[in-house]
Structure formats: C-alpha cells, structure tokens
Amino acid sequence: MNDSQTTLIKTNPFQSGWWRRWGEETFAAYAFLLPSILVFIIFTFFPVIFSIVASFLKWNLPYKASFTGVENYTSLINGPVTSPIFWQSVGNTFYFMLGIPINMILALFIAISLNRRLPGVAIFRTAFFLPTITSMAAVSVVWMWLYHPADYGLFNSLLIELGVPVQRWLRDPALAMPCLILMGVWHGMGYNIVIFLAGLQAIPRELYEVAEIDGAGTLAKFIYVTWPQLSPTTFYILVIGVINSLQAFTEIDVMTQGGPLNVTTTLAYYLYQEAFQYFRIGMGSSVAVILFILLLALTLLQFRGLESKVYYE
C-alpha cells in the first residue's frame, strides 16, 4: 500500500476508525455466521415473536385473525369450556413429572452398581442403554402391545399368574398415566445412568479413602461423599428431566392421543390439539407462550445452577 492510498483512507470518513481495523474481519465473520443466523431468524426468533403476537388474536383457521387482547388467556384460566381442559392438562403435566424422581433414584442405584471394575459390566451397561437409543415411536408401539388389555397381553398374563384380575391399562383412566410414566422411566433411564456414571467417576478416590480412615461405612460414605459430590450431576439430570417431560409428545400421540377422558393430555399435547386438530391458532399460541415461559424459567434455573455448580469444593 503506497502513501497516497493511506492518506486517502485517512481522509475518507467511511474508511476511518473501526471499519479500517475491523472491517474485513467483521464482514468475513458475519458471512461465516450467515447460514446459522438465517435459519435462527426464520425458525426460532420470528416464531417466538409470532407466537406472542398470535396469542392475542382470535384466529380460527380458515377464518381471518382478529385482535382479542388477553381473551385467550382468560378463557384458558377461567373460561367455561376451555379452562377445565387447560387446568387438567396442567395437572397431567405435573403428574407426568412423577417419573423424574423415580427415574433418578433407579438410575443412581444402577449407576452406583455399574461403577465397579468387574468383567461383564459393559454388557449390563449396554442393556440399560438400549431403550434410550431406540426411537420413542417404536418403543411406544411395542409397549402398546405389552399393555394390551386382553389376557394375552404381557402385563395381563403376568397379573393372571399372580392371581390379580386383568386390567385395561392404557384404556383405564386411572392407569393410563402411570403406564406412560413407567414406559418413560424405562426409556429415559439409560441416559441418566450414563450421566450419573460420569459424575461418579469424577469423584476423587481420596475422598473415599479419607472417609474409610475415619471409619465411615457404606451408608456414611454415600451420605457424606457420594451424594454431595454428585449434586451438580443430580441437579443437571433433574432440570433436563423436567424440560423433557414438559415437551413429551411422541408416546402420548402414539399410545393414547391424550385419552382416555383427557387424562394423558399434557400441556404440550393440548397445544398440538388446539392448533393442529381444532385449528385454533390463537389459542394454541397462548398455550405455547405459557409453555415457553415455563421452559425459559427452568432453563435459566439450570444455567444458574451450573454456574454455581450447586456444590463447591
């Protein structure tokens, strides 16, 4: 670059300051980000804003949309027709979360038992992990067969062996949700076991050795070493579990379609029904916004938790 060019750049107001220093690199960097940014704008940021706007509209396809203010929200909260289903789906969503603590307790016990160097442990680990990698749609079909209401259904033939009357499982309003929870625990446990195992293996051996020297037994070591050391892992699994259950959809759609008597209609499924079965875009969007706020709060909680690591050494 010769002298005359340098002076030209210096005197040009558009070529001074940050543009000269950052210009080329900034331009290149945004070119690198462009593919991701485009997809995020169209399929993430625009939809969030759109959902918020649409939640204030009365918009039943194929009719045109009209502004109704907070009417969608008020009818969800205390409208005569929609509010019973909405509150039932809120209740069902929390009921469904009962699977999380069950899953965590089982996964922790299994992870502790798998955390030893004995031949064959890899086979067990694979067995526990198998359900997790299999698609939810496929395992839902398999479990529909296990829950078959006739006596040749696997669960029913087991009950007959035990002398208990046969059940209607997924078709019984009292049992449908527990059935989904049981299958969810079975499907999700492998993932939690892997995370717990990683957490267990990160605990320094010396802590156990020191506890031994102090005369701690198996239980004491679990309470004073394993459990506090695992707390970041446990917290992570808890939050991921809550987020996943808030979004659970596949097993409900394949196995029960929200029934019988709406006992398995969770918030996520209710959203789908409003928007894609009744074509009430406005109503569906207000459910989406409620779900969005719930998920956002939980994700922020997770970041906060990971930041503080829950437990400091």
Binding site: W18, W22, E25, T26, A28, A29, Y30, L33, S36, I37, F40, F43, T44, F45, F46, P47, V48, F50, S51, A54, I243, L246, Q247, F249, A268, L271, Y272, A275, I281, G284, S285, A288, V289, L291, F292, L295, L296, T299, L300
Partner: peptide, 25 residues
Amino acid sequence: FKGKNFMFTLFLSTTMISTQVTLIP
C-alpha cells in the same frame, strides 16, 4: 469482530427455545 459477544449470546439463547414453542409459526 464487532458484536461478537452479542451474537454469541444470541446463539446460545436459542437453546432455551423448544420445538413446541416455535411449532405453530
């Protein structure tokens, strides 16, 4: 580049937004 931190935060913020919420739009 200019706006790097802002863009990075924006990217990470998308992980808080789930499929269900963006489904209808």
